[in-house]
Amino acid sequence: MLTTRHGVRPLGPPDLDAFLALAGRDPVVNVFVDYRARTTTLEPRWLGGEMWGRFEDGELVAACHVGANLVPVQASVEDARAFAERALTRGRTVSTIVGPQDAVQAFWNGVARGWGTPREIRWNQPHLEISGAPAVAPDPLVRRTTRQDMDELYPACVAMYTEEVGISPEYGGGAELYRARVTQLVNRGWSYARFDGDRLVFKAEVACASPRAAQVQGVWVPPDRRGEGLATAGMAGVVELVRREVAPVVSLYVNEWNAPARRAYERVGFRQTATFATVMF
Rank of each mutant, 00 (worst) to 15 (best):
N30S: 03
N30Y: 04
N30G: 04
F32G: 01
F32T: 04
D34S: 12
D34H: 09
D34P: 06
D34L: 09
R36Q: 13
R38M: 11
T39S: 06
T39Q: 06
W46R: 10
W46E: 12
G49N: 05
G49R: 02
G49W: 03
M51D: 08
M51L: 09
M51G: 04
W52A: 00
R54F: 05
E59H: 11
L60T: 00
L60Y: 02
A62F: 03
C64F: 05
C64Q: 04
H65V: 03
V66S: 00
V66G: 01
N69Y: 12
L70Q: 10
V71P: 05
V71M: 13
P72H: 07
P72G: 08
V73S: 08
V73Y: 06
Q74G: 15
A75E: 13
A75Y: 13
S76D: 13
V77P: 05
E78H: 13
D79M: 04
A80I: 12
A84K: 03
A84Y: 03
A84H: 03
R86H: 07
R86Y: 05
R86S: 02
R86A: 01
L88E: 15
L88H: 14
L88V: 12
T89S: 11
G91F: 08
V94R: 09
V94E: 07
S95D: 15
S95V: 15
T96G: 12
T96P: 04
T96E: 11
T96Q: 12
T96D: 14
I97Q: 05
V98N: 00
V98H: 01
G99R: 01
P100V: 05
Q101I: 00
V104W: 00
A106F: 02
N109I: 10
A112V: 13
A112N: 13
R113N: 14
G114W: 11
G116T: 10
T117E: 15
T117L: 15
P118M: 02
P118N: 02
E120H: 06
R122V: 00
W123Q: 07
N124E: 12
Q125I: 12
L128C: 11
L128T: 09
I130H: 01
S131F: 08
G132K: 03
A133E: 14
P134H: 02
P134S: 07
P134N: 04
A135D: 11
V136T: 07
A137Y: 07
A137M: 10
P138V: 07
D139I: 04
P140K: 05
R143I: 07
R144S: 10
T145L: 08
T145M: 09
D149K: 09
M150H: 15
M150F: 14
M150Y: 15
E152N: 14
Y154N: 10
P155E: 06
A156S: 15
A156K: 06
A156N: 12
A156H: 12
A159F: 03
M160A: 06
